[in-house]
């Protein structure tokens, strides 16, 4: 870890301006990813801008849905009654993540910006296109067991976002509020927030250098109320998903009126499955219907030596999650 200076911002503008003026600076909230990567010398920042004093707090229902301040902690949000009742998938995704200690530290905004757990990215001894563009991707022919099968490119197959929350947010059409150094806010749907690796895996989101995530808003829908996050992993706790599914169903008169499906652990970004959703709408919930949707969801998957299992695992995870939400 390199030496760095530290400032605590009292106003949003102070933070975003400092970030704009110093290309090597980083915002710090919970620091659970940032400090880890700095200790590994994967990220080297000469300045950390502490945003914890900024007023981006609160969990409240608005006309656009549930608005969560970006500085709320994972544990606070995961356990909040409004979240538990109206967005069970969000609550589950938060409480199944990391450990209690990490959940108490990590912020919602920081969680959305969590970086990949790809072993090649995290160890500077290896080449890595995401960390050092143009150096190559050893994961293609190496340890790719935990990596992506959807949205990959020949430059990068990392599950760029390895966590859980954004998978649920992606399924439920959450919107991120970003604020820049001019104090201007813009809203970006989470489905448009992450970028595919293509030839530029180092560019992971649409966030500009001087922008700060200030809030996340999740529309309140019937499907969100009947939602679920199912996570499959190597041990019972404190492990990243091998595959996960965030699903929501609105069933009326025995037919699916609307469906929300996203997968985690299998895509280079949280993977929204719009085609699968379309297939579900208008049908009566059944295992066969869910199975067909799951097959569509994984269409186009490009498995490699050690992660071929993820196709079947993700399909089965999805079928199980849908079945549980539909109470089959």
């Amino acid at each position: 870890m390199n030496n760095f200076s530290y400032i605590q911002a009292d106003k949003a503008k102070e933070a975003t301006a400092a970030k704009r003026d110093d290309k090597s600076a980083a915002f710090i909230a919970g620091g659970t990813t940032l400090i880890d990567l700095m200790k590994l010398n994967v990220e080297n920042h000469d300045q950390l801008i502490d945003v914890n004093m900024l007023p981006f707090r609160g969990i409240e229902m608005t006309k656009n849905g549930l608005r969560i301040g970006a500085l709320e902690r994972m544990s606070e949000v995961g356990e909040h009654p409004l979240v538990v009742q109206n967005f069970p998938a969000v609550s589950e995704s938060l409480l199944l993540a990391a450990s209690a200690q990490l959940r108490n530290m990590a912020s919602i905004g920081g969680n959305v910006l969590q970086r990949t757990r790809c072993g090649y990215f995290r160890d500077t001894a290896f080449p890595c296109n995401k960390r050092e563009p143009g150096t190559g991707c050893p994961a293609l022919e190496g340890d790719n067991r935990n990596l992506a099968i959807l949205g990959t490119s020949s430059a990068c197959i990392a599950t760029s976002y390895p966590g859980d929350l954004s998978v649920a947010l992606t399924a439920l059409d959450a919107v991120l509020t970003l604020e820049n150094a001019k104090g201007k806010q813009r809203e970006v749907p989470i489905t448009k927030f992450y970028l595919l690796p293509g030839t530029t895996p180092q560019k992971e989101t649409v966030l500009e250098a001087d922008e700060l995530i200030v809030a996340v808003t999740i529309p309140q829908t019937a499907a969100a109320r009947k939602s679920k996050y199912l996570k499959v992993r190597d041990r019972s706790s404190y492990a990243y998903a091998l595959a996960s599914a965030a699903v929501g169903l609105e069933v009326q008169g025995g037919l699916i009126r609307s469906a929300r499906v996203a997968l985690g652990g299998v895509g280079t970004q949280p993977w929204r499955c719009s085609e699968a959703e379309k297939m579900l709408v208008g049908k009566a919930p059944s295992e066969a219907v869910f199975r067909a949707a799951a097959e569509v969801a994984l269409r186009g998957a490009k498995p490699r030596e050690h992660n071929a299992f993820k196709v079947e695992m993700a399909q089965n995870t999805l079928v199980r999650a849908l079945s549980e939400v539909a109470s089959l």
């Binding site: 072993g119 090649y120 160890d123 001894a125 290896f126 050893p138 022919e141 190496g142 340890d143 990243y240």
Partner: peptide
């Protein structure tokens, strides 16, 4: 996991 091309571990921490 020891990478076959680099003979270097890819998961050398307790996460």
């Amino acid at each position: 996991f020891r990478d076959p091309n680099f003979a270097r571990y890819t998961n050398a921490d307790l996460a």
